[in-house]
């Protein structure tokens, strides 16, 4: 989804995306909190739930960690929402089943430092003129990233509005959000993203990993 994200931009990009999703899935009473990105001219909204923020930040830390360790891999972060079904506890110890009803996959193509690897970016760079000054290039790249981030946010909004029927009834919530989990995976397979995305949406794919 997002390419040419520089290392230091990962955090903001992920925060922005994840929280925007959460804002649409945390259907309990929220006091929205506007957050201005430092690196981009984008304002996104958080639910105003400190616990959620903390969790998201933790996951982002993990992700960045992973990116550091495997710089050449496609990195993916997955946000899943599920319902908790209490299986009639029988003789199995497995009492709780996670019924996933939605999963969001965020692929980030992290730029290599000296020269960004523009993978299959749909925002292909106009010209990579070696004579271009570095700062100009950086600005252009930043602007491009900003616009794709913007686009991603609108995609989220669109998706959230188009598909509403699968959302379980809003429980009397203790927490703000539906139960969720954030998973991180990385793969060198470039085609991984979309296929997985579709498949996961169709079949709930219980992952106990946390």
């Amino acid at each position: 989804m997002l390419s040419d994200v520089e290392y230091f931009e990962i955090r903001e990009v992920l925060q922005c995306i994840l929280h925007t999703i959460f804002f649409h899935r945390a259907l309990g009473l929220v006091r929205p909190k506007d957050i201005d990105l430092q690196l981009f001219e984008i304002t996104y909204v958080q639910c105003g739930d400190a616990e959620l923020e903390k969790k998201v930040d933790e996951k982002i830390d993990q992700f960045i960690d992973k990116v550091e360790k495997h710089p050449n891999k496609k990195n993916q972060i997955c946000l899943s929402f599920f319902e908790v079904k209490n299986k009639q506890a029988t003789w199995f110890t497995h009492k709780v089943e996670h019924l996933y009803w939605e999963q969001w996959y965020i692929n980030i193509n992290v730029a290599q430092h000296p020269k960004p690897i523009s993978g299959k970016s749909h925002h292909s760079k106009l010209v990579l003129d070696p004579g271009e000054s570095a700062s100009e290039e950086r600005n252009a790249r930043r602007a491009t990233l900003e616009s794709s981030l913007h686009e991603v946010l609108f995609q989220i909004i669109k998706f959230v509005n188009e598909k509403k029927d699968h959302i379980p009834p809003i429980p009397n919530m203790e927490g703000v959000s539906f139960p969720y989990e954030i998973t991180i995976s990385s793969s060198s397979d470039s085609a991984f993203g979309m296929d997985m995305f579709k498949r996961m949406l169709q079949t709930g794919h219980p992952t106990m990993l946390s």
Binding site: G28, K33, D34, D49, A50, I170, M173
Partner: peptide
């Protein structure tokens, strides 16, 4: 923005003690 921070000092979103009726509509304060 300051006000917002005051609004949500912690994970108090569900604590409706200071919630006005208007805020409860659509769970959006």
């Amino acid at each position: 923005s300051g006000e917002q921070i005051l609004y949500s000092p912690s994970s108090s979103a569900s604590s409706s003690s200071s919630t006005r009726p208007r805020d409860k509509w659509f769970n959006l304060a």
